[in-house]
Simulated assay, not measured.
Amino acid sequence: MSESSLLASPFLHSNSGIHSDSFYASLIGSSTHKSQLRQIHARLFVLGLQLSSLLITKLIHASSSFGDIRFARKVFDDLPRPQIFPWNAIITGYSRNNLFQDALLMYSKMQLARVSPDSFTFPHLLKACSGLPHLQMGRLVHAQVLRLGFEADGFVQNGLIALYAKCRRMGSARTVFEGLPMSERTVVSWTAIVSAYAQNDTGCLKVGTS
């Protein structure tokens, strides 16, 4: 029986002992409609799996990918003490659905909860800063990136360059780019800085050797 068939089958609601985190993670990944995710979420409560960080994170990602951000937030709020993965998932969900203010608000809540961000937190957070755009918040995020040592991450760097380009701060965008040695400049970083110059119509990018 295929996973898609299982989603519509009474087997999903049985007491079969094969149900596990990996089983439901697979079902979440193969869901094709938000109603299926709601069925799975209800079943997790029956099985006592509703606090599984893996499954909740996957549910948040899947729900937000269907545009059902309200349900994603409900799933998140059911966690008594969410760790970094669900926090990243809900911030990403808001950002991907262009709810940039909500993404920044969730980041503030994460800080109040004393959950430390990781490198996966910042790209979508920076996208939210760019989307508003909110230069002041972006600079605060940049300061935290530097403090935590994530400035060499290609996706974080891309987000920083995009933020400064959107806010027409090409000097800052160039500083971010040149902060990496030539040997560590990837296709991602080159694409980001070239796109920034093109977006601001500021002429050619002159490449240094430092």
Score class of each variant (00 low, 15 high):
Met182Glu: 14
Gly17Val: 15
Ser9Ala: 02
Phe76Leu: 04
His134Lys: 13
Ala198His: 04
Lys127Gln: 13
Ala143Asn: 06
Lys58Val: 10
Asn200Lys: 00
Ser4Gln: 06
Arg38His: 05
Glu3Arg: 10
Gln136Thr: 15
Phe85Tyr: 15
Arg43Leu: 04
Val188Trp: 01
Thr92Val: 12
Ser189Tyr: 01
Ala103Gly: 11
Cys167Gln: 01
Phe100Ile: 13
Leu54Pro: 11
Ser119Tyr: 14
Asp153Pro: 01
Val145Leu: 05
Leu163Val: 00
Ala128Arg: 06
Leu205Gln: 07
Thr121Arg: 04
Gln50Asn: 08
Asp201Val: 09
Val156Arg: 02
Gln50Gly: 00
Asn88Met: 07
Ser183Thr: 08
Leu140Lys: 13
His142Ala: 03
Gly93Lys: 06
Ser22Ile: 15
Arg96His: 14
Arg43Gly: 01
Gly179Val: 11
Asp21Ser: 12
Arg168Trp: 03
Leu59His: 00
Arg168Tyr: 05
Glu151Lys: 08
Gly159Lys: 04
Gly208Lys: 04
Lys74His: 11
Thr32Arg: 09
Arg81Gln: 10
Ser30Gly: 03
Gly179Trp: 10
Glu178Pro: 03
Gln144Tyr: 07
Ser210Asp: 13
Ile28Asn: 00
Gly208Pro: 07
Leu51Pro: 01
His19Arg: 12
Gly171Arg: 07
Ala89Gly: 02
Val194Asn: 02
Arg185Ile: 10
Cys204Ser: 12
Arg168Pro: 03
Met1Arg: 02
Ser64Asn: 02
Phe23Tyr: 13
Ala113Gln: 12
Ser52Asp: 09
Ile56Asn: 03
Glu3Lys: 10
Phe120Trp: 10
Ser108Glu: 10
Phe120Val: 10
Pro80Ala: 03
Ser95Leu: 02
Leu51His: 09
Ser95Ile: 05
Ala113Ile: 11
Ala42Pro: 04
His19Met: 14
Leu6Trp: 05
Pro117Trp: 11
Met182Ser: 15
Arg114Lys: 13
Ser30Leu: 04
Val46Arg: 05
Ala8Met: 13
His61Phe: 13
Ser195Asp: 15
Arg169Phe: 10
His124Glu: 08
Phe11Asn: 02
Arg139Met: 13
Ala8Thr: 15
Cys129Met: 07
Met1Asn: 07
Ile18Arg: 00
Pro80Lys: 05
